[in-house]
């Protein structure tokens, strides 16, 4: 009889892309749960809308591109993109905000660049930046943490806020602000206060900063850190990028804080507020848009860390994760070109 022919190796590991993505999604769960606890059901709604939109958009664009739909949808990459975007946007943002963001992420940022593996920018972050620039009001009205607002955002409230706001965006936004269920994020508040001449000390005395780095935010970041450490343990991600981001951010913020504590926030605030941990473990580690070599990844991470600090401290936006990641994405091919490991039997560089 004739036997089957195949190229070596004839065995392979069982860890497939779909499984990797699935595990990434699972590792997001602690963070998502914490976020739900502190900021109410809004996030869950955003996630649902984002995931449905992402799969629909991916299926549509795949059929337009004449690519296999079922097997591609099964790689779970759209799921991860949708989750990251949904987590990043305010829980009570109107539904169309997340829909626009997801469509942009999947169709334009991912598939118009060639689909999974070929996109230059992190789809979730590009979608987030689009929304932040286009709808700054909706994107900066964040729900107050539960204990601060003294009232919970239950599912009905969240549904109402997310789906009934389409007709009158500004009114809803103001209403929400007035009834105290939404407010600026701690980093936003701090920036505003500093610009108004307050010292960090004065600003940090506000109730929003209760806890280590702002109520709720610290816990959420901690949960993402835990999820990230699980991924490291499972070897879904490697340490270089996360280490680069966190160490660079820590060093930069420590310098600033030591130089002038009145106008600079503490390293702790930087590390555990805003989207730092989410970025360090889940966003910047997207291998497609990161550098590939070990050293390159450290450089890539350090770059993001420094950019986060610089934009947070000197830039116009309260948080800087998305911008930092996108800027570093642009540099990734450049880093890859110049940072190559020394091959066995070669003296240096290439």
């Amino acid at each position: 009889m004739a036997f089957k022919i195949a190229s070596s190796p004839h065995v392979g590991s069982t860890l497939q892309t779909a499984k990797v993505m699935q595990r990434v999604a699972l590792c997001l769960l602690p963070g998502i749960a914490t976020q739900l606890y502190f900021f109410g059901f809004g996030t869950l709604l955003q996630i649902a809308i984002a995931v449905i939109t992402a799969y629909a958009a991916e299926a549509a664009i795949l059929s337009l591109r004449n690519r296999p739909i079922k097997s591609t949808l099964a790689d779970n990459s759209a799921l991860v993109t949708a989750l990251l975007l949904a987590i990043a946007i305010p829980p009570l943002a109107p539904w169309w905000v997340v829909v626009i963001g997801t469509l942009f992420s999947i169709i334009i940022v991912k598939h118009l660049y060639g689909g999974l593996g070929n996109n230059l920018f992190n789809p979730a972050m590009a979608g987030y930046v689009l929304l932040l620039i286009s709808f700054p009001v909706q994107m900066t009205d964040w729900v107050s943490p539960m204990s601060a607002a003294q009232q919970s955002v239950d599912l009905t409230y969240a549904l109402n806020a997310v789906f009934n706001s389409a007709s009158d965006i500004l009114v809803i936004g103001h209403n929400l602000a007035i009834d105290g269920s939404t407010m600026a994020t701690p980093l936003d508040t701090l920036k505003t206060d500093l610009s108004m001449g307050m010292t960090t000390h004065e600003s940090l005395a506000k109730p929003i900063f209760s806890g280590m780095a702002g109520l709720g935010w610290f816990e959420v970041n901690l949960a993402f850190l835990i999820g990230g450490l699980i991924m490291l343990k499972l070897k879904i991600i490697r340490w270089q990028i996360s280490f680069g981001i966190l160490s660079a951010l820590f060093i930069c913020s420590s310098f600033g804080f030591l130089l002038n504590p009145d106008t600079h926030v503490s390293p702790m605030m930087h590390l555990f507020s805003g989207g730092t941990m989410l970025a360090a473990f889940f966003i910047a580690t997207d291998p497609v848009t990161a550098a590939t070599s070990h050293r390159g990844r450290i450089i890539f991470g350090v770059m993001i860390g420094v950019l986060i600090y610089v934009i947070r401290t000197f830039g116009g936006y309260p948080d800087a994760v998305a911008f930092a990641v996108l800027l570093a994405n642009m540099c990734a091919p450049f880093i890859d070109h110049y940072v190559r490991p020394r091959t066995y039997g070669h003296r240096s560089g290439s």
Partner: peptide, 22 residues
Amino acid sequence: EKACIRCGECAIACPALLLPQQ
């Protein structure tokens, strides 16, 4: 064969220190 996601696992596994994904 599916799309390369540039995860870099190949580079970690390579005994010759190459960048297989590149």
